[in-house]
Write a protein that binds this DNA or RNA. Structure first.
Length: 555
RNA sequence: GGCCCCAUCGUCUAGGCAGGUCCAGGACACCGGGUUUUCAACCCGGCAACAGGGGUUCGAAUCCCCUUGGGGCUACCA
């Protein structure tokens, strides 16, 4: 029986890299009829943010990735938050200590830093020098009493090479002595990732560890721990390629802080105090962050980015939700990043993904997250999505972005969706239909559109004519409107655009909307006429004023 | 610096492990044309890659080595 797990550290929203890892684990469990576990690795007291678990859960749910065991779902191997499993880790650490397979250390961070620098200078890899005699519990007690930092290190066997059998990469060998003794329990009593992960994977009976390549170097150490704890056979490992951003590095939660740091450094005279204020942190915290010493909370990152006017890479799953992407798109696209079914299929519903998924087809090379291809996928998924489903997605989207269309009824929304055939994102649909849900007074005129369509040629005159014709219409149907506009265009010996565009700008304020016939019909006669009148009034007034203004400035 | 991973069109990739069927296939992007009431969508056509060098072999995208390039790790982060 296959058991996989996704084990995020809750430091922010779920990003696309994490989502892909979760997806592959989930696909493999579904494919094999196994179990998929969600485990929260919240062992770092400094970095965890209070709302992050909720965010990760929501994002996974949105994607449709359901876990069989984990927070909220429960299960026989809980608790699923590592912070609630302290006693379990303590027990295993004591076991290693008793068996002399681990030992106490009392070094300060400064001392360790110095040792590392020394190794660097000698062009050697840093490896912690294991003491001849291990301090005992009594020594640890004394050290603690004296205020020294107390950690526990695992004595990694140094006598033979270590081999990781990896599904993606084959056998990866590490020379004997390559992996130094590493810390398994921190001064604050929490286990480190490398320890908690091993204990939990064993206790949760995980059979397949599918994770990013960044963990490959952790694996020999984890395997050694596994052995030392007497856990028996290792799980199978699959270290996936990582997804990189177009700026080069690993596409991860580190990307956004990285981008901010870069932006800060790139700016010459920057007011750090104001920036800290914008992020609601202290100046010291900000400086520590800039130097890469500490992490800051997500909202803080966002706030600082806004303050700086810096564009952050859009890497969180929620970003894509709010940009109008479908979960089906994300699942399909992410699934094809570093995996493929072996034939030319690309657009696949999730069932097909599950059916075709196989760990043996994971690719080795890192891949770039291509937004344009994602857009193409989204276009296609919008096209093939069943009406009901698409409607629900659209409603969720409207709510998330607080669109004025949020209160519209299902019938109307369905009609709008249908009219928008060929839309690339839900945002496209919303943008094109938004004008229907605004009050007449809320219409904002796009300057460019007004200039290009109304002020050029005889846009205003055409609009006036159109107004009169519309006013005279008894049947205000889509067909009647179309007939009238086409007829008028023919009469005037111009393209339909020449009569349609001024009308469009008048009722929407922009040059982009639903098809003009639909736009007018759905808005209704009364509002259409009112908006045309408003437009005529406003444009005439504005042009008059602007002429006055220029004259004033000239004098 | 040390260790590890990776390398096919601009991008995601098929082909590689079982060498000939590959003067390298698909998709996105791009370019040209068509359709068109806006934005899209759609239709037709086109451009475009085996990182470089050395081996092995009758034969190499495929196997081996080196170089170069990219990425990861090198934390009391995960």
């Amino acid at each position: 029986m296959v058991v996989t797990r996704f084990a995020p550290s809750p430091t922010g929203y779920l990003h696309v890299g994490g989502a892909r890892t979760a997806l592959f684990n989930w696909l493999w469990a579904r494919r094999t009829g196994g179990t998929f576990i969600l485990r929260i690795e919240d062992t770092d007291q400094k970095r965890n943010t209070p709302t992050a678990i909720r965010q990760v859960i929501d994002d996974l749910r949105w994607l449709g990735i359901q876990w069989d065991e984990g927070p909220e779902a429960g299960g026989p191997n809980g608790p699923y938050l590592q912070s609630q499993r302290r006693d379990i880790y303590d027990k295993h650490i004591k076991q290693l200590l008793d068996e002399k397979k681990a030992y106490y250390c009392f070094d300060t961070p400064e001392e360790l830093d110095a040792l590392r620098r020394q190794a660097q200078n000698q062009k050697k890899a840093f490896s912690y020098r294991r003491p001849e005699d291990f301090p005992d519990a009594e020594d640890a007690k004394k050290a603690r009493a004296k205020g020294r930092s107390v950690t526990v290190r695992f004595a990694v066997p140094q006598d033979e090479p270590m081999v990781v059998a990896d599904i993606v990469r084959g056998e990866v060998t590490f020379a004997a002595g390559e992996i130094g003794d590493f810390i398994i329990q921190k001064n604050d009593g929490f286990p480190t990732y490398n320890f908690a992960c091993v204990v939990d994977d064993y206790l949760m009976k995980v059979t397949h560890v599918i994770r990013g390549q960044e963990h490959l170097m952790n694996t020999p150490g984890q395997q050694a721990l596994w052995k030392a704890l007497g856990f028996g056979d290792f799980p199978k490992y699959a270290h996936m390629s990582v997804t990189v951003s177009d700026t080069g590095g690993k596409l991860s939660k580190r990307e956004r802080p990285k981008a901010i740091r870069k932006a800060i450094k790139a700016m010459q005279d920057i007011d750090l105090e104001k920036l800290a204020e914008a992020g609601s942190i202290s100046l010291e915290e900000l400086e520590a962050f800039i130097n890469g010493k500490t992490a800051v909370d997500m909202p803080c990152i966002d706030a600082m980015a806004k303050h700086l006017g810096a564009a952050l890479p859009e890497i969180n799953i929620v970003d894509f939700f709010k940009s109008g992407y479908l979960p089906e798109t994300m699942v399909n696209f992410l699934g094809l990043l570093g995996w493929n079914p072996g034939d030319n299929r690309e657009i696949m519903p999730v069932d097909e993904l599950i059916e075709s998924f196989d760990l043996s087809r994971l690719t080795k090379a890192n891949s770039l997250f291509d937004r344009q291809k994602l857009l193409a996928f989204n276009t296609e998924h919008i096209r093939i999505a069943p009406g009901e489903k698409l409607l629900q997605h659209f409603k969720d989207y409207l709510k998330a972005i607080e669109s004025p269309a949020v209160s519209a009824d299902s019938r109307l929304l369905s009609k709008i969706i249908k009219i928008c055939e060929g839309a690339r994102t839900l945002a496209d649909i919303e943008r094109k239909s938004r004008f229907l849900f605004l009050d007449n007074s809320q219409i904002k005129y796009d300057d460019k559109a007004v200039k290009k369509v109304l002020l050029k040629n005889d846009g205003l005159a055409v609009l006036t004519t159109v107004r009169d014709k519309l006013a005279a219409m008894e049947q205000f149907t889509e067909q009647a409107i179309e007939d009238m506009l086409r007829c008028l265009a023919e009469e005037k010996q111009v393209g339909l655009g020449k009569v349609a565009q001024p009308l469009r700008v008048a009722i929407c304020g922009t040059t982009i909307s639903l098809s003009i016939f639909n736009s007018v019909e759905m808005l209704g006669k009364e509002k259409t006429l009112a908006r045309i009148d408003n437009t005529l009034k406003k444009v005439k007034k504005d042009t008059g004023c602007s002429m006055l203004d220029t004259r004033k400035n000239g004098e």
